[in-house]
Amino acid sequence: MEQLHTFSQTLSLNDIPALRKQMEQAMLELGGDPDAVADLILAVNEALVNSMRHGYQDQAGQVTMELWRAGRSLVVVQRDAARPFDPTTAPEPDTKLPLALRPFGGMGIHMMRNFTDEMRYERTKDGRNQLTFVKYNTFP
């Protein structure tokens, strides 16, 4: 794998739109397919919101986002030092339910799964959450 770019900053919820846009611009400048990049950015946005809400409990916290190239795939590795939060274990929502019977929300992790080709979580040895997204066929 070839590392392409790293974003590292103390992040709060209000900073997410700006970071999302910076990452999208970087992915496009690296030659990423616009549709694949758009999917990945949707997933990354949800992951960042989860990190800030569930991990850092709405407080500001350190987040690192690494962009890697693996063949034609674009890989995003997100790390934070928040309390453990594994989105890969969340149950799938029932998207067939009529609106009246649906809970509000709960679609973020569904979007993370479905807008990417792989999503992996691990708690690193130094006590960080590490979430990896892989989007196939992003590069020509």
Partner: peptide
């Protein structure tokens, strides 16, 4: 151009508001 899951919550809530339900 962009809608996150929070945006979906927004749309969902707007639909319920138009039904006259008490907003959250």
């Amino acid at each position: 151009p962009f809608m996150s899951s929070a945006g979906l919550v927004g749309l969902h809530t707007v639909v319920t508001v138009m039904h006259g339900d008490q907003p959250p």
